[in-house]
Simulated assay, not measured.
Amino acid sequence: MVTDPRPGQILALVGWSGSGKTTLLERVIPLLTARGLIVSTLKHAHHAVDPDQPGKDSYRHRIAGATETMLATRERFVLFREHRSADEPDLALLLSRMAPADLYLAEGFKSAPVAKLEIHRPSLGKPPLWPDWPGIIAVVTDAALPACPLPTLDLADPGAVAGFIATRLGLR
């Protein structure tokens, strides 16, 4: 499991592209924050992403060789870290860079040694992950899964998903 000073408060949502992970997070996060929880998220992407803009000062700092560049405004700050290696940072490293929270929800990171909810839509024609990926504790789905030995939750019921997360992780 990921070594972190906040054990039991990390949960990854995993599933095939198009399964509804982001939409479910959008619906579950407000329900968890309404319980008074501080929720932070991490998103894994398989493709190159650069939210900075070519020509802007922060972009120029990074291109010039800065390892870290922070862009700060009144509304938010963004920390860009160039890891300039072929290796992706692991979940534990990323979590170590984040401020304390009650719950960290990771979208993706299916290889990370943390508890996971699988979002599975049989209509996508993709096989379920739960038989082959360790750490999956429940499946959130839009169809009956009679062969699944894990708890199943209705994808259309974000309240039940939020309740499961809070109960399973021992959150208030």
Rank of each mutant, 00 (worst) to 15 (best):
T73W: 10
K110G: 02
D102F: 02
P5Y: 08
D102L: 10
A156P: 10
R74G: 12
P151A: 04
K56D: 10
Q53K: 15
V28F: 01
A86F: 15
A34I: 07
S40T: 10
T41P: 05
T69S: 11
A12H: 05
A66C: 09
R35F: 04
R168I: 01
A12M: 06
G135H: 01
L117G: 01
P127F: 10
P131R: 06
V114K: 00
E88I: 04
T69I: 13
D50Y: 07
V49M: 08
V28G: 00
T33P: 03
D4H: 13
S96A: 12
R76M: 11
L71V: 15
T67V: 12
A45L: 15
V140Y: 01
R62W: 13
T23K: 11
P89Q: 15
G108W: 03
D4Q: 08
P122D: 00
V114L: 06
R27I: 06
G36P: 02
P100F: 05
R97M: 13
K43A: 08
G20S: 03
L150T: 01
D4I: 11
P127K: 09
R172Q: 14
A34E: 14
D154T: 08
P146S: 09
L93V: 13
V140I: 05
L93S: 12
A12L: 03
R172T: 11
G108H: 03
L145F: 05
P51R: 08
V49K: 07
A160N: 07
D157T: 08
M1A: 12
R60V: 14
A156H: 12
A166G: 04
R121A: 04
L93C: 06
G36N: 04
A106L: 04
I136M: 01
V139K: 00
H120M: 04
T73F: 08
E82G: 12
T3E: 14
F80S: 02
T167D: 13
L42H: 01
P5W: 11
A64W: 02
L150M: 09
V49R: 14
E82Y: 09
